[in-house]
Amino acid sequence: MKWGVLIFPGTWSHQDFAHVFQDVLEVEWGYLWHKETSVAGYDCLILPGGFAHGDYLRCGAIARFSPIMDAVVRFAREGGPVMGSCNGFQILCEAGLLPGALLRNDSLQYRCRWVHIRTERCDTPFTRTVPPGQVLKIPISHGEGRYYASPETLAGLRSNGQIVFRYGTPDGQITDEANPNGSLENIAGICNEGRNVLGLMPHPERASETLLGSEDGRLLFEGLLAGALPR
């Protein structure tokens, strides 16, 4: 199973993902520059955090038109697993692979700190080994992470079980105080209807070793590895 880590001009979390794949999980991986037009040979695609194309106009708005995105959209539509973290989540929303959008934090301030997220759904390829309701300790680092969707879209997310993570307290209570950015319904991560595309604001790659304060983020990679069938 080979992981592809996308790099746009301004991406900054790609080396953290590479470190996790290379040194922690010891799996096959490779970088994919945004000008490439094929993702052939890769089994899972990662859109890391950062400020792709300077976040000009809107976060993810320009990255969506990078040459590689056509291949990413095709890969996702064919059921390939795609994970976007932070800026990657914003890009997936702009590209239409995930519903809704991410807006300026309600505090108007950049938030870089640990959060606790409650796992709401274990029926995605990423969360399949996470016990239901498990609280994960993973850091966030963003200025624009306030999840928004229209009431109709939100109702669809709820009824289809697409809300994968919610911000909460360390013991899993979903409260306003535990919401770091004003996201609707404390949403920290969602998946598409096909469940193979996951977007989340927290950074699992920064919480994959005890040395860094938490190993909880690693569960998302291990979930996918556990389900990887030999081809």
Binding site: L103, N105, D106, L108, R146, Y148, G182
Partner: peptide, 14 residues
């Protein structure tokens, strides 16, 4: 502009 239904914290602060 942000839609009417979307909270604009920047506008509120100003």
């Amino acid at each position: 502009t942000l839609k009417k239904s979307v909270l604009d914290p920047q506008g509120d602060t100003v």
